[in-house]
Design a protein around this nucleic acid. Structure first.
Length: 654
DNA sequence: CTGTCAGGTTGTAGATAGGG
DNA sequence: CCCTATCTACAACCTGACAG
């Protein structure tokens, strides 16, 4: 039309429409075809309020090929854009989060004296130590096609229309029919001709066919008013506040044999549901409230999303941001944070990483979350609010962790090894039992919980229990890190003379019931820090254990409050006889030592500057329960005369 | 001006995993 | 096997923009 219409353009854009008070009641409005169902207040409970059906097409586009509604060459169009505070935040590419840097509370009295930093391991990370965390939407979950009632009924309606439902109809009617049953039979979906027939039938019916057994749902052929693209849609009722209703068109997924209607975009010529868009993307994002200007607030999300084939980067990015804000709004910690604010915070990305592989995304999530945990632990002076609920620990990325911490001014390292005569107080409420005679006489007691560790020649795991004995702790039914470790390592084949690692449960302490989770969390983090520092199993004789991994997979951040770091340091001193520290890492220092450090990083492979002893070589470890009795004896009677709870009998079941 | 569309929000049930 | 916390999916609700 008139191309000079630009004059009219922006003048009116600004005009705000008078928000229609829908509930006023006059909404009977005779829309295109809304004559029936108009009584609103008359019917008692679930009356059919005033509704309006959507306009439908009476015939398909004349140029559309058989089985399709739009002419060949119809292009997907941009969604219509609208500008809101959220959308402008989303598009603000210059956004910078509040910087955060580690300034120790107590001025660096300790000069760099640490003997060793994070121990960087080389080689493949063994399966039993891999990052694990089930949070976030994953392929395993999303891949499952929902057998939601409506989808089945849509399917049934369509198959009936094209006369294909006779063989499978009985099954479909059975409420309990298993999903596999429904979705495995005759999976080819409709052919072009059948689809053409479907369209014809719908047009013959006036463009609208009711969905079987689903009142107020219709199958319609509808043209998107903005883009003009014609789609097969499900018209379903949307109840509005005040008892009014409206019908809304959801595009049906155009993948053969799929009848889902959620997450399909109206601007696509062939809209697809989440699982049928061509490209699946695992995304990890760091997110912060856009408006916050004083305190760094951060949360991480991981989710699976999908985009159409050949989506542009900017399109993908846009979709991802939209999905992030939807996802994050359901996170409890984010909601709680929002509740403390007068204006509802807008989530804004700090970082965004895409992966085609879920495990890679998980590694990224773990790395970012773990760094966030260290920031929360650090007794620094800059405020920081960490909204992550669960921290999946990062394993196998020691180098990256070290670098990232240093970028933040944090240097995790070993300050010193304790002298044998040095006494360390147990930092948690309750009683430390390891190595004391009392450890052997503990009985279950109401209101009392016990803390324990499970160790092997290459790992440790911390947990709590209601009972002080561990006879069935490793009976294989559970899915925790220690049980998985046992399962995986025992299934492996070893060279002659080497056996699967022996697991030993040791009673550590007891406490009041209410304290068990917080103490456990701090012990778990201690174990993780000890792993980063490359410490060895202190319950085994010198040189009879590797630099151990921690096999706890996650920790709840809510259990960690101020002061946790010093308790954790204290516990590491007690259990490992090593004092860790979070030193200040100065940038100047870094550049001073730049060359040296770069070299070190380059060939860091397994060299660790400070360690006296050779690295543990599992192949040389003759320890195993079956043949050498001495080793276990040695374990329990080593220099520190460690008593090991009542576990003796617990571990003889291999 | 009016009603529709779609993005943004909110609330809830069910699934899952990790604890014992 | 049971219990609990958490997250997802779903569905409903709210609202701004804009097409007609």
């Amino acid at each position: 039309m008139e191309e000079e219409g630009h004059s009219s353009g922006e003048d009116f854009v600004v005009r705000r429409p008078p928000v229609a008070p829908m509930m006023e009641g006059e909404e009977e409005v005779a829309g295109p075809s809304s004559n029936k169902r108009s009584k609103r207040q008359s019917s008692p409970t679930h009356q059919t309020p005033s509704v309006k059906l959507l306009p439908v097409e009476k015939k398909k586009h004349p140029l559309a090929p058989t089985g399709y509604l739009n002419p060949p060459g119809t292009k997907d169009t941009e969604k219509r854009k609208s500008v809101t505070s959220t959308s402008s935040a989303r598009e603000d590419d210059d956004f910078e989060p509040i910087p955060w840097y580690y300034f120790p509370e107590e001025e660096g009295e300790i000069q760099d004296e640490g003997s060793g930093g994070i121990y960087i391991r080389t080689g493949e990370l063994a399966e039993e130590f891999e990052v694990r965390y089930s949070g976030g939407a994953s392929e395993s979950r999303i891949g499952k096609i929902k057998t939601e009632e409506g989808v089945d009924l849509i399917r049934k309606t369509i198959l009936q229309l094209v006369g294909k439902d006779s063989p499978s109809a009985p099954e479909l009617d059975i409420e309990e029919s298993s999903p596999e049953l429904i979705f495995t039979q005759k999976e080819e979906g409709l052919t072009d001709d059948e689809r053409e027939l479907l369209f014809t039938k719908i047009f013959e019916a006036g463009g609208r066919v009711p969905v079987v057994d689903k009142p107020d749902w219709n199958l319609i052929i509808h043209k998107a008013p903005t883009t003009g693209i014609i789609h097969l849609c499900i018209e379903s009722m949307r109840r509005q506040a005040g008892g009014d209703s409206e019908y809304r068109a959801y595009r049906l997924c155009t993948k053969e044999n799929c009848y889902q209607y959620q997450r399909t975009t109206a601007s696509a010529v062939l809209p697809k549901c989440l699982s049928h868009k061509e490209t699946l993307i695992n995304t990890v994002m760091g997110v912060t409230p856009y408006e916050e200007r004083n305190t760094l607030v951060r949360i991480h999300v991981k989710f699976l999303n999908s985009v159409r084939l050949n989506s542009s980067d900017s399109e993908t990015k846009h979709e991802t941001k939209l999905h992030m804000s939807k996802t994050i709004s359901t996170y409890q910690t984010w909601k709680d944070y929002c509740a403390t604010k007068e204006v509802h915070p807008i989530p804004k990305e700090i970082s965004m990483h895409h992966y085609d592989n879920e495990q890679d995304a998980l590694k990224r999530l773990a790395l970012e979350s773990t760094i966030g945990m260290m920031m929360k632990l650090a007794p620094g002076t800059m405020p920081f609010i960490n909204l992550d609920a669960v921290i999946p620990f990062s394993y196998g990325m020691e180098d990256e962790i070290d670098t990232r911490l240093k970028e933040l001014g944090m240097h995790l390292k070993i300050l010193r090894k304790l002298k044998p005569e040095e006494n360390v107080a147990y930092p948690f409420p309750g009683q430390y039992l390891l190595g004391t005679p009392a450890a052997d006489t503990q009985k279950p007691e109401k209101g009392t919980a016990f803390l324990y560790t499970i160790t092997s020649r290459e790992m440790w795991y911390f947990g709590w229990s209601d009972t002080p004995d561990f006879k069935i702790r490793l009976d294989g039914r559970r899915t925790d890190g220690a049980s998985e470790y046992k399962r995986i390592t025992e299934a492996r084949t070893y060279p002659p003379g080497i056996n699967a690692p022996t697991l030993t449960c040791s009673l550590l302490a007891k406490c009041a019931d209410k304290d068990k989770e917080t103490i456990e969390a701090k012990m778990i983090i201690s174990g993780y820090i000890a792993y980063l520092l490359g410490l060895r199993n202190p319950l085994r004789p010198q040189n009879r254990s590797a630099r151990c991994y921690s096999t706890n997979k996650c920790v709840l951040l809510s259990l960690i409050g101020p002061g946790a770091w010093s308790e954790i340091c204290q516990f590491i001193k007690l259990f490992w006889r090593v004092e860790p520290m979070l030193g200040k890492f100065e940038k100047q220092l870094r550049s001073k030592n730049r060359v040296k450090m770069d070299e070190a990083e380059e060939q860091s492979d397994g060299e660790d500057e400070s360690s006296e002893d050779e690295d543990y070589n599992p192949a040389k470890d003759m320890h195993n329960q079956n043949e050498s009795s001495e080793s276990d004896v040695g374990l329990f009677t080593d220099a520190e005369s460690v008593a090991s709870g009542s576990n003796g009998s617990g571990s003889d079941s291999y």
